[in-house]
């Protein structure tokens, strides 16, 4: 038997913080690829500390629903899961290329494949692009349009900026959008001045955050000048300094995130059958368009 644990932050104050975690877990459940699927949290329950014991499977794939390698993925989660042999060196990463490490959880004697965070997986690039498609309702969005990928910045962790820059560069190489820029909340180039970095009239802004919350629903919209007061809401697109800003909200709420979770588990050796293809087909931005990035999905699979 194999199990998947999606490890997320959660919140003591905001009931919506766990919504994307539950939604992506359900998408994975519906593929039937794992015998068991569990959500686990730092601030909700089941806690990281107690999730593994709720599983009957001997082999467990743990995928952190976090944006970057750093404090939570390198210290908190492995410690709370009781991965005593853990050492960040096992990921052998320079900040964006952790794949997985195989360890034992000492309270239960199970094999744990501890995966890198979803935010640094290559498949995340596709999710950012799909987020742009969703917010513009244009499956071919790109030509004549600028794309800003927004991150927290280095306040707590330099890898957080690396992840943003990594995907920005990959999207740039696709040559799909006229301009692609990485912007940050607490360092240069700052998201406050978003319009200064783009020539294009239309700019799609995708925050590289897991869940919507204070930063994506209050800070960033106000800082960019989409609205005077977040409580009043904002238009999509919103006119700012002669540009049309298509603000997407947290990328982590995009359905295709479930694909990244599966890719992480597959990279770590999970036996998934055709689950990845089925999830891609089912979560393609409801446009009837073919999934972009990979060969044909199973015919008729999906919704």
């Amino acid at each position: 038997m194999q199990a998947l644990v999606i490890a997320a932050h959660g919140s003591h104050l905001n009931p919506d913080a766990s919504d994307p975690t539950y939604a992506h877990a359900d998408t994975v459940r519906e593929t039937g690829a794992f015998d068991e699927v569990r959500e686990a949290f730092w601030k909700e329950e089941p806690h990281f500390r107690e999730v593994i014991r709720t599983l009957e499977s001997d082999e467990v794939f743990v995928v952190p629903l976090f944006i970057s390698e750093g404090y939570f993925t390198e210290q908190v989660i492995p410690r709370e899961l009781r991965l005593e042999e853990w050492d960040p060196e096992k990921w052998d990463s320079d900040g964006t290329d952790a794949s997985q490490a195989t360890l034992e959880a000492t309270d239960v004697g199970k094999t744990i494949h501890y995966c890198g965070p979803v935010g640094t997986h290559d498949a995340m690039t596709d999710v950012i692009v799909q987020r742009a498609e969703s917010v513009t309702e244009d499956p071919n969005v790109g030509e004549g349009v600028g794309l800003a990928v927004v991150g927290h910045g280095t306040e707590r962790n330099e890898n957080s900026a690396k992840a943003v820059e990594y995907h920005t560069e990959r999207i740039r190489e696709q040559d799909r959008f006229d301009e692609v820029e990485a912007l940050f909340m607490d360092e240069e180039p700052e998201v406050d001045d978003v319009t200064e970095f783009f020539e294009s009239e239309d700019v799609v802004v995708v925050p590289l955050f897991i869940a919507d919350g204070y930063h994506t629903q209050e800070d960033i919209p106000e800082d960019m000048g989409l609205t005077e007061d977040y409580r009043l809401g904002w238009n999509v697109p919103a006119d700012v300094d002669g540009h049309r800003i298509w603000y997407a909200g947290a990328v982590g709420t995009e359905d295709l995130m479930a694909d990244v979770i599966l890719e992480r588990a597959a990279d770590a050796g999970a036996d998934l059958g055709d689950a990845i293809e089925r999830v891609r087909a089912a979560t393609a931005a409801g446009t009837g368009d073919e999934p972009r990035s990979e060969p044909e999905p199973g015919a008729g699979a999906g919704d």
């Binding site: 329950e45 089941p46 806690h47 107690e50 999730v51 014991r53 709720t54 309270d107």
Partner: peptide, 21 residues
Amino acid sequence: VEFFYPATVANWHRELHGELD
């Protein structure tokens, strides 16, 4: 039950067998 009260069944079971850590 796991969704209502996460991990309570697992910990109850451990305690039942004298193995609550």
